[in-house]
């Protein structure tokens, strides 16, 4: 039992720690006041999404190597979980932005990049539903998924940095106190465990989705 569940238990403990101690830990005094604690939760969504998309990318590559259906299954389910994190990231970001920037959505390279990134992956889901043949669908979507991952990195990580004038932290030369590299040491004690916790939670949901999908297929056969 414990052998099977230890990392799930770890995810629970880490997130429980983040949700409780995250409100207790001392934070530096900044313009954004106590909302800085959102860093433990909002950023976690993007760590979760990026992990899921990376998993999907790797399994799409593996699918193209041997055309094993198992790999295609992991690729699609990882995108599904990644999209869930992505939307939560956008929504939590909007709540936060409403306070820090005065509006839920501002014209900013990072925000628009994240929105385009989500659209790229929504297109992946639509592409899948438009191809009827199972093997064809797997092949076409695996190729698209590799482009989608590259596009996502360009839109979310590279272009906002090149634009240079983003309000959002982690976009290049603005030295913000919420950057992980410049993070207050006391905040790091919550930030990193929280990120691991969110990633593990995503992995758990991914595992559940993969197993359900497998069961569905077995029933059809």
């Amino acid at each position: 039992m414990l052998k099977q569940y230890w990392w799930k238990l770890l995810s629970f403990l880490l997130l429980l720690y983040a949700v409780t101690y995250g409100f207790y830990v001392s934070i530096p005094e900044t313009m954004i006041l106590q909302t800085m604690r959102n860093l433990f939760y909002h950023v976690g969504m993007w760590f979760g999404m990026f992990t899921m998309l990376t998993v999907s990318f790797i399994y799409s590559l593996r699918y193209l190597k041997g055309f094993r259906e198992e790999n295609d299954r992991i690729a699609i389910e990882a995108v599904n979980v990644g999209l869930m994190f992505g939307f939560l990231g956008i929504f939590t970001g909007m709540v936060w932005a409403n306070f820090t920037w005065g509006a839920p959505w501002v014209k900013d390279p990072k925000l628009n990049g994240a929105a385009v990134g989500l659209v790229v992956y929504l297109a992946y889901i639509i592409l899948r539903s438009s191809v009827e043949d199972r093997h064809k669908r797997a092949k076409v979507s695996a190729v698209y998924n590799i482009f989608a991952f590259v596009l996502w990195i360009i839109f979310v990580m590279i272009l906002p940095r090149l634009a240079g004038d983003s309000l959002h932290p982690a976009t290049g030369n603005n030295s913000s106190p919420v950057l992980p590299m410049q993070l207050d040491p006391s905040m790091r004690t919550v930030f990193y465990p929280a990120m691991i916790g969110w990633i593990l939670l995503g992995t758990w949901i991914l595992q559940v989705r993969i197993r359900v999908s497998k069961l569905k297929q077995q029933l059809e056969e």
């Binding site: 629970f12 429980l16 949700v19 409780t20 758990w204 949901i205 559940v208």
Partner: peptide, 14 residues
Amino acid sequence: VLAVILVGIFVYLF
């Protein structure tokens, strides 16, 4: 309250 919700979600997922 947050902690209780978190516990609930994890128990449910389990």
